[in-house]
Design a protein around this nucleic acid. Structure first.
Lengths: 355, 355
DNA sequence: TTTTAGCACTCATTATCCCTGAGTGCTAAA
DNA sequence: TTTAGCACTCAGGGATAATGAGTGCTAAAA
């Protein structure tokens, strides 16, 4: 059954009042806000219908109404207005993302923090490679007579380096040769293939040469290993406590623990998988499969990071979430992230190693 | 006035019972635990004395006693026993710190997380350079005809890289020359000196050559800028809610906010400065100057990261903190960190850049 | 047929009162 | 100096009552 116009107006008013106040909404409040020239009694009748239809719920007989998950869903799909970001907010977002010299990880982390501050809800971020990573290129830089820096560039454009000490002195020519071997035999191989190739090489190479190759390849394997994992971060968990539904610790603790653990447990713990294409996704209350999220809503967006990686950023809050505000901010973020990673704007790399 | 032995035993018993139960301690409980063969009445008399002297406090007339900050201080200085770590715990710590392929930042961050898990309190970590950082060496790697990777190594052993696209094609020889210029004119300079030198160079170089130099030096300046800042992280803020003193949100919120903000605000917000030498430091309740920490205790240790940086790691909790347990874990961490950074065990570096 | 005014009813919330019991300080005897 | 005894204090918890916002229903009005 399609709702008539008046019912929609009333439902929208109830959702918005409830989002603002966190208190069950009575017929009087609706009459004041909805801009309908009817009495509270009429509204009560309509509210009774909406309850019957499953869009509203009643905490107890003598209380006002609260939107049901179905009510929120209708609101999100049809009734919700566009929310405008202020100039200050867009400025803030741009400032946060336009930092140069930051690594992928940090840009994403920072994005999560800022989004959390702007929305007053916790935010999680995740990134994972879309396909297996391989080494694209090796470079070796002589530092001293018996030490060089190995630079490994992967096909997801990550560059890592490590200082390698050699057991004996090595000439430029030898280093050149080593570089040739590495680039001809180990480029484009997956992690497992690299290990295999290294094994084969052991039997038919000079022990000295093999040791050198092995040190660099082991390092490359570590790099691939690290790159193949996903990164997950959360930000602003404490924002939860600002919302009345989590004023009791019994309610807040499980969700906070879930969010904290998410950082440890990897993407399996996330409410959705990293799907293709850029898109926005809203899960309301029981639409979440995960038990810990049964009474919470998640608004999230996924985006591409270059050609090889995929990222997701999501806002977690009570079902009484300010969907209009959150979706506006989130889509601005997702657009900005897509744009900046699309441009390949990740200019820098970093490393530590012993002297 | 020096306390007699019996008073010390009673004080110690009260502190330890209170740490375990979070309830004011009565004379009966002390009599059971302290191992003194005297009646509760005698203990009551001693407790009255200890209250008079300022070591104990009484929430109200008909309640038991609670240690005052002065009482905790005496306990920490004189009465506290050595706490032993279990084999599992040392194993856990070693596992967490012995990860290869991690950057400084991540090792420290991870250390904070694990310490927080082991102690059930929030943990903050910070690191800052002891002196100004300079570039130690430039390397340039040709990638394609019109793109090369600039590798900048600083004197605190950080290596960063960036892909630089050139307006026109460049030969190996020209790249060689560029490298020579950079290494002879910009190595060992501070941030400001580099900017100066670059300015001077502008007037007397060919525009094309200057543009190239400028791109690399600008990158180096960004690296120095980033390295000169301090890093601050916090972990396990939600652990606060597990302790009864923060069961009310009014108590928990300000401290949680303080800890969250610490990440943004830099070392100025920290309870202490990064002092020389490896040492442990305990601040109890009002000994903290910062208003937000007036009712909390901070146990922290600082340590050296190589020759050029200084780190600090600290545990934050209620004054009723398990000082013996926390100090044991913390000092094990500080020792481990000193040892690992002393050995220069930071083997890897990372980077992202466009293709 | 739809809307509205009126009214009795419901029930979470808050305030109030009382009771219980752990713990104290003091006194007087050991 | 230590201990037993005892009157006193006071936070915490449970029961009870008062409050008031909001409802559903009925009957009249539009």
């Amino acid at each position: 059954m399609e709702l008539n116009n008046r019912k929609k107006k009333i439902l929208r008013a109830i959702v918005e009042i409830y989002i603002a106040t966190a208190e069950p909404v009575g017929s009087k409040a609706v009459a004041e806000q909805a801009g309908l020239d009817v009495s509270t009694a009429t509204i009560r009748n309509e509210m009774a219908d909406l309850t019957e239809l499953g869009y509203l719920e009643q905490p107890h007989t003598s209380a006002g109404r609260v939107p049901s998950p179905m009510g929120y869903r209708l609101y999100v799909n049809e009734l919700m207005g566009e929310h405008q970001l202020t100039i200050q907010e867009t400025q803030r977002i741009n400032d946060a993302l336009n930092l140069r010299m930051e690594e992928l990880d940090r840009v994403i982390d920072r994005a999560g923090k800022v989004l959390s501050q702007l929305s007053d809800y916790p935010v999680f971020t995740a990134a994972a490679p879309k396909k297996r990573i391989t080494v694209k290129r090796f470079d070796l830089l002589m530092v001293e007579e018996n030490a060089f820096i190995a630079v490994v560039m992967t096909d997801n454009s990550v560059v890592k380096n490590k200082l390698i000490r050699m057991p004996e002195q090595l000439s430029d020519t030898q280093l050149q040769l080593l570089s040739t071997v590495l680039n001809s035999s180990f480029v484009g191989l997956s992690l497992e293939e690299m290990e295999e190739t290294l094994d084969k090489m052991e039997t038919r190479s000079a022990p000295g040469a093999f040791q050198l190759i092995s040190m660099v390849v082991q390092f490359a394997i570590e790099v691939l290993n690290q790159q193949s994992g996903q990164t997950i971060h959360t930000a602003g968990i404490t924002h939860l406590l600002e919302h009345p539904e989590y004023r009791s610790l019994d309610k807040a603790k499980p969700l906070m623990n879930y969010l904290s653990e998410t950082e440890e447990q990897g993407t399996s713990n996330l409410p959705v998988t990293l799907t293709e294409g850029q898109n926005m996704n809203i899960l309301i209350g029981p639409e979440n499969i995960n038990e810990a999220l049964k009474d919470t809503s998640v608004v999230m967006a996924s985006y591409d990071i270059g050609d090889n990686m995929r990222g997701i950023i999501g806002v977690v809050g009570p079902t009484r979430m300010d969907y209009a505000k959150v979706t506006a901010r989130l889509s601005y973020f997702a657009d900005s992230l897509t744009r900046m990673f699309g441009k390949g704007e990740l200019p820098s790399g970093e490393g530590h190693h012993e002297e």
